[in-house]
Amino acid sequence: MSGTGDLERRYRRLIGWYPREFRRAHEDEMLTLLLETAEDGRTGPTLREAADLVLGAVRVRLRHAFGPRSVPHWRRAVDLSAAVAPLLVLVPALGTAVAVAGVEFASGEPLSLLKWLALPGAGLLLLLLAWSGHRRTAAAWAWVLAVAEALSMARHALLGGLHGFPTSFPLVATATAALLMTFAGDLRDGARALRRRQALPWAVLGVLVQPPLVMTLTNQAALWDVAALPLLAAAAGVAVRSPAGRRALVLLSPMVSATYGLRTVSSLVLDGTPLIPAVAGALSAGIGLAVVLRGRGPEGDAVRG
């Protein structure tokens, strides 16, 4: 390849750091300017040019992510997340209820279904309120659940120290749901978007954030991590293809990390099985990246907004 061809290819690789929308508008003219100002015979960008292009890309990406033009995307993301959040409260609660009932049944203890169905019932009510568009009532109900969870945690902490901290998922889930619903615009819009085009990744997310059931059935929490984290990454990879989906993932990350983050850390530190989280993490990163890159076709908008 000629020197100019090499130089152009290397410049294009650096310009690849910019968002797709920006590149569509400016890539060719940027390249023209870079080639016009490069000395004859040069085959690669100078360090200063490379730094300028990468820093420019960071500036443009930050402005697109948080600038005034990103406000509609954030609004849609809050609506979408607020519609997803009740699912992430309900599904793990159902998983826990079924798992605990299974343990009680196996051990011959009398079933206390009413006790264990209280949280799933509360989660179902939250989902119905949210998806029928009763935003304020849903937000108030989510706050009630969050406060109840906080009081329950405080009681456990008083009785048994901070032993129960890794099981704080219901508190994180209900508090995140309450916050999202408080600031959401129209929950019906979020629910419609969820049903229309983004149901798959969120459904996967909802099912995956309920390890208690699988843990009880298989008694293999670590294997669940290996299977669940890559699936979670793939679901996230689908979600990141839209600007609102990417932002919704950020808003929902406390709910997911409260489960998988704490569990992975406890598996690493307490159980002494560093291989499992390492394998799960590597698989997740690979699959998530593959899904994201697959969505960067000409018609995709993986890096817009």
């Binding site: 920006f22 508008a25 400016h26 003219e29 940027m30 300017l33 870079l34 100002t37 200063r48 040019e49 300028d52 292009l53 990468v54 820093l55 420019g56 890309a57 500036r59 443009v60 402005r63 600038g67 005034p68 033009r69």
Partner: peptide, 15 residues
């Protein structure tokens, strides 16, 4: 002005 700085500024000014 370097191209990265110039076009980041032009993109913002256009917006």
């Amino acid at each position: 002005l370097r191209p990265g700085t110039l076009y980041a500024a032009l993109d913002r000014l256009e917006a």
